[in-house]
Design a binder for these strands. Structure first.
Lengths: 347, 347
DNA sequence: CTGTTAGCGCTTTCAA
DNA sequence: TTGAAAGCGCTAACAG
């Protein structure tokens, strides 16, 4: 760029390249040193009013934006939290992260978010790149991680929050609920309703499968009746809910009983299909969903579902971290936020 | 922390504090210098096979994870892209970002994502904090930004991509579609269908309002009939779709004609409400949505909607950036990806 | 209240 | 193929 001179110049750094205004430039303009600018920004009370004013003027004039990279390197606090979720288009995770982000942002943190797509290998790789950003904490979805991932996490020395599932022995902090319990509760709910037949429709989510397995096992134990299961490897969609119900009816002769779906979206589709085929909901076929999504109570018939407080997960996770950053002496470990069956009309 | 000695020690940095393994430590272990480790990582071909092997062993043994912060500061390339969307729980933005992230991740970039909640002031603040991370590029939703935001963006000197809307004079790169055109196209579609009455239901989104305004204006121009408008300040939900339709019927005596909704979710709710009240869809009331979301074709009746290819926005944005990073001589500027009316049964 | 001095852990020349 | 040296822009003691 700047000349092709062969003369071994004193290696003057190519500062020119407008890589942004520096504190030093601001300081020069305000007639103070660089450190004073730093102070003015981090703790204005440590700088005289007059100096502060000049610095602020200089900042405004230059459009200075502090370099957080340099700050993080120097202070070894990045004010960055990284988060991994299976999917950002799944409202369940998106809502949780939203609540988490809002709380953390208020405290001055930013969130670096990545999708892992339910793949442990991908999660491991992503954890490594995330840790390379030296976040002040990391949030993971789920409690199952590869051994190598656990090693890196532990070695990083930062707080690790596992959400959306529950274990008594988390890596560090765990905020979630027991998926298996939801399946059991749904089975009991079905039996209490008087159902003598049951089926399930599930999407490709490890936790969804655990809920389903618990439902089936418990229902069979209580009634002696086996449960027909329809599983999809992909994410939940209305179309798959319809297809699942169609298979249940066509292939399994399921025309009466309750269907436990791994998400409200699937339940919605199942209801649409059954209704279209002339079955009464819940008269002939009852449907129970999972998630209590926005629409669950507003479709016809309103969907009976298992509700978990998504926002609460995010908020609680953020609060636990914030408390930790403040050096709380009583660190949170495992918090079970539970769930609740919302009885509406579909079951 | 380390003792209360008054003796002015040689200020030995508190290195101890396990802030992670450094390249220097790895190098020491492998019997080479720190730079060699750096090279081994960035371009293995520049290091002898034997050295490479020893370095890799040391890395494995120590669990070394490179410090991207230090790397970014030194190279002034952060391999970080920053993105701002109005809402991450809105599938429209989530799907776009997902496609964008995937592409960028494959190229070694990570995405720092924030929500702005449709608020320009919040956007401006967020842009500032994002720029402080010295991203290699920034992606914004929409084309309207505060003057101060524009200034910061320009001053940053990095590529700026504006998506999801279209202008011929973008800050830098723009990838989107003309919202106004969608409204017009919908109005024409209605008139061609023979509708002589129309209404709208919109959520709190500036672009949704522009689509609606274009629809109403055009419909009125073509038919001479005013359009009843129901506006919500909040996000689209099935419940609001129902409420909107209820108001249209109860307050505006709207019992026949077409309803242009700012999203498929609203359309879905509107259809549910009208159906429940005994109106035939599309016989009595026709409904047209926006977005062609996953469920649009699978509910009853399937929703006629305006489709925009969400994934394409993300992919195209990523490709444009990647090309730019490679120093393309023909920079993309404004790309109009258009839209399409998907005719199903609701209209 | 303000400035000086050392780094933070890398990448980038330049030299060997 | 390897190493030495010089920063990147900021924060953290420490000294006035």
């Amino acid at each position: 760029m700047d000349g092709g001179d062969t003369k071994p110049t004193k290696r003057k750094p190519a500062r020119s390249a407008s890589r942004g205004v520096t504190m030093e430039a601001v300081g020069r303009m305000a007639g103070v040193s660089q450190v004073t600018v730093s102070r003015a920004l981090s703790d204005p009370s440590k700088v005289s009013a007059a100096t502060l004013r000049k610095i602020n003027e200089a900042i405004a004039a230059t459009g200075f934006v502090p370099n957080a990279i340099a700050g993080a390197l120097a202070s070894s606090r990045s004010k960055l939290i990284t988060a991994l979720v299976p999917s950002i288009t799944n409202i369940v995770y998106a809502a949780m992260i939203r609540a988490f982000s809002q709380r953390m942002r208020e405290a001055g943190y930013q969130i670096l978010l990545s999708e892992t797509g339910f793949d442990p290998a991908e999660e491991e790789r992503t954890i490594a790149t995330h840790l390379s950003r030296r976040p002040d904490a990391i949030l993971l979805t789920g409690i199952h991680h590869s051994p190598q991932a656990r090693r890196m996490l532990l070695a990083s020395g930062i707080p690790v929050v596992e959400v959306w599932d529950f274990t008594d022995s988390p890596i560090d902090i765990c905020i979630g609920f027991r998926h298996v319990e939801t399946g059991r509760a749904a089975a009991e709910f079905a039996v209490e309703r008087g159902d003598t037949a049951a089926a399930t429709i599930s999407a490709g989510d490890e936790r969804a499968r655990r809920r389903k397995a618990a439902f089936s096992e418990h229902f069979t134990r209580l009634t002696g009746t086996p449960v027909a299961e329809i599983d999809f490897d992909e994410m939940a969609t209305v179309a798959r809910g319809r297809k699942g119900m169609a298979r249940l009816i066509d292939d399994h002769g399921f025309t009466s009983g309750i269907v436990f779906c791994s998400s409200d979206v699937l339940a919605h589709g199942a209801i649409i299909e059954a209704t279209k085929r002339g079955f009464a909901i819940p008269g002939d076929i009852a449907v129970i969903g999972f998630g209590d999504q926005e629409f669950a109570g507003d479709v016809e018939p309103p969907i009976t579902t298992i509700k978990v407080d998504l926002e609460a997960f995010g908020r609680t996770a953020a609060d636990a971290l914030l408390r930790r950053f403040e050096g709380s002496s009583t660190p949170d470990t495992a918090i079970d936020l539970g769930f609740e069956i919302i009885r509406r009309q579909s079951a």
